[in-house]
Amino acid sequence: MHRGKGMKFVGDSRVPQKKGFIPPKDYSEYPHKTEAFLPNFLLKEWMVGAVFLVGFLVMTIAEEPPLEKEADPTASGYIPLPDWYFLFLYQLLKYPYASGDYKVIGTILIPGLAFGALLLAPWLDRGFDRRPLKRPVATLAMLLAIVGVYYLTWESGVTHNWKQAAQQGKIVEKVNIDKSSAGYKLFKENNCVSCHGGNMQGDGPGPSLVGKNLKPDHVADVAKNGVPPNMPAGVFKGTDKELKQLAEFVSKVSKK
């Protein structure tokens, strides 16, 4: 059969027609609803980011950072305080059933459940409505998270001993302490380090001994008789000769 003028091609409806690439409509067809990503949208994002960056830089220049003295591993009485965005977790670890023998609950279980709920949010609530009342699961979860984080952060700031924290973190003048001397050995043997710190700068419950101009007689009296109610009597355990040696050492370090 020769191809001629009267030949017709008939398509079989049972064979699906392969759809080609359908380009999306141009953004200009949606007036006031969308815009080009480059440069319109991206430029606006950069401008907003630049404003926040400049504002942050101005705040860091205007406000002096709250620096503290160098960390001392011998300071057993130091009260730590994390940055503000971790205060709620810090407060959580103060409760009986989230710390101590139950620390796994406060460090792993509760944060794990919170982050797990956040990861599963798209499957827990698959509604398309934007009204909060129409999406009770997502709304309730978000409200619980906001209230919990806000309350724990507030409680952490209220219960923290800011006065003691300011004293223990205060930057003081460095002094050269001969830690190999007999006086420092007596200072350490009588457990003075736990209150006054290894550098004698008040890293624990006790005050700093640096720059106080303490007299040897006063140091000996305090070491033997104490200072109620913070320091009990009988802290020093040694002979009178050792007490005099300790007092002279502390007095020498305390000179301005």
Rank of each mutant, 00 (worst) to 15 (best):
M7R: 15
H218D: 15
E45G: 11
I22A: 12
A138E: 04
K8L: 05
M59A: 13
V227I: 15
K179G: 08
A145N: 10
N40L: 12
F56L: 13
F249L: 02
H2D: 15
Q201N: 13
S194W: 02
H196T: 03
A247K: 06
A121T: 12
I108E: 04
F249I: 08
K103Y: 07
G20E: 09
V58C: 14
Q245A: 01
M200I: 04
D178N: 15
L124V: 01
F115P: 04
H2I: 08
K244R: 05
V175S: 01
G77L: 04
L120D: 02
E68S: 09
V253G: 11
R3F: 10
S208W: 00
K33P: 00
P111A: 01
A98F: 15
I146W: 01
T107Q: 10
M59R: 12
L246Q: 08
G234H: 05
D72E: 05
V147N: 00
L119Y: 14
E64Q: 12
L243D: 01
E242F: 01
Y95F: 12
G197N: 06
I79T: 14
K134R: 15
K18N: 10
I177C: 04
N230E: 14
K215C: 05
P31N: 00
V235Y: 09
P216I: 00
Y90D: 12
V104Y: 07
A233V: 06
P96L: 12
F37R: 11
V222T: 07
H32W: 10
H2N: 13
P229F: 03
M59L: 14
H160D: 02
Y150V: 15
D83C: 02
F56P: 03
E68C: 05
L186P: 07
P136L: 04
S76W: 11
A117I: 15
S28W: 14
G204F: 00
F9R: 13
M231V: 03
V210L: 01
R14S: 12
K224W: 03
W46Q: 10
E35L: 15
L87F: 08
C192P: 12
M231T: 06
S13Y: 08
F21K: 10
I177N: 06
K237A: 09
M7Y: 15
D72A: 02
K185H: 07
G77M: 01
R130Q: 07
F187E: 06
P73Y: 02
G148P: 03
Y184A: 02
V58L: 15
V210G: 01
N161W: 03
E173A: 01
K179H: 14
K19Q: 08
E63K: 13
G204W: 04
M231R: 02
F115V: 14
K134L: 12
K103D: 06
M1K: 15
V227H: 07
L143N: 10
P122E: 00
L119S: 11
P132E: 09
K237H: 09
M59D: 11
V172C: 03
A165K: 13
V193L: 12
G169L: 02
P228V: 07
I105W: 07
S251L: 00
A117K: 06
A75M: 03
G116K: 04
M59E: 12
G197D: 01
I22V: 13
M47N: 08
A247E: 04
T34P: 04
Q245Y: 03
C192K: 04
